[in-house]
């Protein structure tokens, strides 16, 4: 019998309890079991960043994380980031700076950028570029994403 794991964790600030197969990824759990489709499947190999989520305050590729490993941890997805004050500020910066085109990579970038700004308020261009190197975007050429993150980072540093 394939192993099932009972796990309990915090998801966007709400306690969740779930039974998941041991081999399931956190990405599958979020999308297929919990209906949180803001986190995207882009490659399944940790190369594109579309599935980026926050786990205990750090970003990870949820396609590389076992759902079972979420036990006892604090997860925040784009759905959680989007409704935080910092997330709203970042969203407004993405919108105003034209950082969104097809939008498929955007949730992952939003989560990664929120983490980057948290760690580096007022981050400079080079730090931002390195900070989002794990997020692929095929539409924008990144320029406007970098501008958006810089604008939000600057606001954060003025807080």
């Amino acid at each position: 019998m394939p192993a099932k794991c009972d796990i309990a964790f915090s998801l966007n600030g709400v306690k969740r309890e779930l039974t998941v197969p041991a081999g399931m990824s956190a990405l599958e759990m979020l999308r297929d079991r919990l209906g949180l489709t803001g986190t995207k499947y882009g490659c399944g190999e940790g190369e594109c960043g579309a599935c980026t989520i926050l786990v205990d305050g750090s970003t990870v590729n949820s396609c590389l994380m076992f759902a079972a490993d979420c036990d006892g941890r604090e997860l925040v997805t784009i759905e959680g980031v989007a409704v935080s004050a910092a997330g709203e500020r970042l969203r407004d910066a993405f919108v105003a700076n034209g950082a969104v085109q097809c939008g498929f990579c955007t949730p992952g970038l939003m989560v990664q950028a929120s983490h980057l700004i948290e760690r580096h308020p007022g981050a400079d261009e080079a730090t931002i570029r390195r900070g989002i190197e794990g997020n692929l975007c095929r539409c924008t050429g990144y320029r406007k994403i970098i501008d958006a993150v810089a604008a939000a980072a600057k606001e954060k540093s003025h807080e």
Partner: peptide, 22 residues
Amino acid sequence: KRIPKMDAPDKASGKTRYIQDL
């Protein structure tokens, strides 16, 4: 003018449902 995309707020919030999400 610099007009932000109408669909950008939803996309940046993870609300947009692509075919994979339907």
